[in-house]
Structure formats: structure tokens, C-alpha cells
Design a protein around this nucleic acid. Structure first.
Lengths: 208, 208
DNA sequence: TTGCTCCTCACGTCACGTGAGGTGGC
DNA sequence: TTGCTCCTCACGTCACGTGAGGTGGC
């Protein structure tokens, strides 16, 4: 404030930043800035004689715009296109990003539900051996494909062969874990089918 | 069923599958099976004289176990460790997967909310030019960092410079879009902070 | 002269996709 | 002989992380 020729010069518009400075202030890595330079997404307007990057205020603004768009889930390629004005229908792009995010929410939620069902099954068993848990996880996945009658028979049979090798306590725990898992799976499946029906509507179709 | 020496031989346990067969039946690509072979995750027990892969029933079972575990979000490295019995605390692994899935749900939900706020802002503007949308998205991101007073002033000023170049209709649309966006952002921010507080608890700490 | 920052390669990540060029079995 | 399937390289993807080996400015 009082110094005028300390680190930055007083010339308006002449303030520049070195990579390290810009990186720490923007909470990105130096490597990220190098990467954006390589991609041509953000090339510093100046260089020192030694070849060190110097970012101007305009460059900094562009970086902020890049980080903003990146924060909305755009790929760097899309970020570049948007900033270059190569995208005419931005609303359409945002719409697609939204659908993608919704899909991610559905997928992650379904995964979360299945995992917590496994954990509930685990806690139901007093001594959850690794084989038990594996069995439950496999059974849950098995149900995700529709089984042909023969496959179902074989699954039953292999389950039987397997459970014959267990102590009564282990067998009971396995049964209980499986029941837990199956019911949770059904919930997930029901939700999935509902979602599938909704997304099967033609594009642009609305309920009114 | 009636033919006994048609494509598969009758010898029990002798049934084998070629990559293409196994791939289509298991809904994975041939390349995926090649990949698992390269990783040593699933190497066919047999080969023909010409070097073609032949998968036995045991191999097929292992593939199903692999796909099951993969479906629970494990990396292939973790899948391998589990199948090799190198993981002693499976419950802990599942627990970490669950936390990761929950994190994904939170991140995707927050992204979805911000994107739909942008779209609501968009529809509020009768003529949403690309600059308008960009402005809104940037403003939303800007708020995600805490601004120093000077930065806030500069943001206001740049906003002013920008809005001076707009028609009254555009300016009004921008104002409305921004209001929408800000309120949605606040919701998100509140949720984020709540989550942050929760995750700031030391490991193993529970509320009872 | 010692640190700290900067530079340019260049390989690694993760789970495969996608040719390229060639061989085997019905 | 024509298709179809199979084989083994080997590069590409996406957004950087992580050294390696060397130079510049206070």
C-alpha cells in the first residue's frame, strides 16, 4: 500500500502474476496451469526473458472463467469451446450436463444402497467370515441379471453345495444376510425400473 | 439337449468357453477379458493348440465374482486382492466403499442443484445470450470462494461495467437469473457446511 | 553461495476402446 | 475360398501427479 515499487509495479493494468503466485491464489496446482497452457486453454500473455510465465489480469479472469465452467462438470474441451464462442446453444449444453449429473446421482445412490445393504447383512452375522460376505455380494449381483430357469437351478445348487460346508450358526447368519440383501436389492430394482420408465419418454415430452 | 456331441462335449466338467462366447454371455467385451488376463485377474485355465483362450466352469465362476465385486465399485486391484484372500477386513473395505459412494452422491447432488439453478435462471431470461449465462455461472462459482472485501468490490465493479453494456431487458433478466442462482447456491452452501461439520469429526467418533 | 521458483520433457494413472496386421477352424 | 473368430502389439482416453535434470533471480 505504501510501497510503490516493491514487488508489483504501479502501472495500472501492468500487474502480472507468476505461475506459483497464481496457482496458490487460485487453489490450483502449478501443473494444472502448465496443463492448460499445453492445451492452449490458458496461455500467459507474457513471459520473462528467462521464459518464466507471466499472467496478466485478463489471463487471471480467463482462469476464473475456466475454473467456474470446470466446476459445473464441463470437460476442458467443452470449456475451451464455450470460451471460444464455439457453442451456440449453451442452454442445451447445460441441460445435458444436468442430465449427466442426475444419472450420476442415481448410479451413486443405487451403489450406496447396495453397499449399505451388504453392511446390514454383515452386522446381522455374528461372525462374518470373508466367504460369507462374498457370497452375499455375489448373490446380489446375480439377481441383477435375469436368470434363466437353468441358471437359477444351478445357482440354488451351488448355494446348497456351499452351505453344506458351513456350521449351523454360519448357515443361519448367511440366510439372514441374504434376506437383508435381497430385500434391499428389490427396493433398488423397483427404483431403477421407475427411473427407467421415466427416462424412456421421448425427448421433449412433458406431462402436461 | 438331444445332441450329445454337437458343439460342447458331454464330459462333465469339461465344458469350456471361447472368449467370444463368454464375453457375449457375460455382457462384457472381449477386450475386457483380454485385459483381465493381462492383469492376471482372470487367466483361462486352458488354451487350444493355436493359443485360443478356453475358459472352464471355474474360470466362469471367477469372472462372475469379479463382475460382482466390480459392480460394488471396487477397483480391479481391490477385486484381485479380495479374490486372493489378501484382504482380512472385508467389512472395513465395504465401509470405505460406502463412504466413497455417499461422497459421490453428495457431490453429484450439489452439481445437479447448481446446474438446475442455472437452467431456472436461463428460463427466467427471455433472451438468454451466451454472455448472460456465462456471467451467472461465473458469479455462482465466485461465491464458492470467500471473497476478500477488495475482491468483492472489484466483482461489483466489473459486474457494473458489464451491465452498463446491456439493454434494460437484458439487465433485468440478468438480475433475476442471478437472484435465482444465488439462492440456490446458498442452499448448496448450507448443505455443504453441514456435511463438512459432520465429516470434521475424528475417525471412529459417533454421536452416542 | 544457498534457497526458492521456474523451466521442459516424459512416464504413470484407470479400465478398457480401437485399430493394425496376421493366423486358425468350419 | 470366403467369413467369422481368434491372436498379439500398441496407441489413445482424461486431467492432471510426480519425478528428472537443469536454469534464473534475490
Amino acid at each position: 500500500m505504501s510501497t510503490i515499487e516493491d514487488d508489483e509495479t504501479g502501472r495500472p493494468g501492468g500487474r502480472t502474476w507468476r505461475v506459483g503466485e497464481l496457482a496458490s491464489q487460485s487453489k490450483v496446482s502449478v501443473r494444472t496451469l502448465h496443463h492448460y497452457d499445453e492445451l492452449g486453454l490458458l496461455s500467459p500473455s507474457k513471459r520473462t526473458l528467462a521464459g518464466h510465465r507471466l499472467y496478466t489480469t485478463a489471463d487471471v479472469s480467463r482462469l476464473h472463467r475456466i475454473l467456474a465452467l470446470r466446476g459445473f462438470g464441463l470437460t476442458l474441451a467443452d470449456v475451451g469451446r464455450v470460451l471460444n464462442g464455439e457453442v451456440d446453444d449453451l442452454a442445451d449444453l447445460v441441460q445435458r450436463q444436468l442430465q449427466q449429473a442426475e444419472q450420476q446421482v442415481r448410479a451413486a445412490s443405487a451403489l450406496r444402497d447396495r453397499l449399505s445393504a451388504v453392511l446390514r447383512g454383515l452386522s446381522a452375522a455374528q461372525n462374518p467370515g470373508p466367504d460369507l460376505l462374498l457370497e452375499v455380494m455375489e448373490a446380489m449381483s446375480e439377481l441383477n441379471r435375469k436368470l434363466t430357469p437353468e441358471e437359477f437351478d444351478e445357482l440354488q445348487e451351488s448355494r446348497k453345495r456351499w452351505s453344506d460346508s458351513l456350521s449351523p450358526e454360519q448357515a443361519e447368519a448367511a440366510r439372514q444376510a441374504r434376506t437383508e440383501a435381497m430385500s434391499a436389492l428389490s427396493d433398488t430394482e423397483r427404483a431403477r425400473m421407475t427411473a427407467a420408465r421415466a427416462s424412456a419418454l421421448p425427448e421433449g415430452w412433458t406431462s402436461d
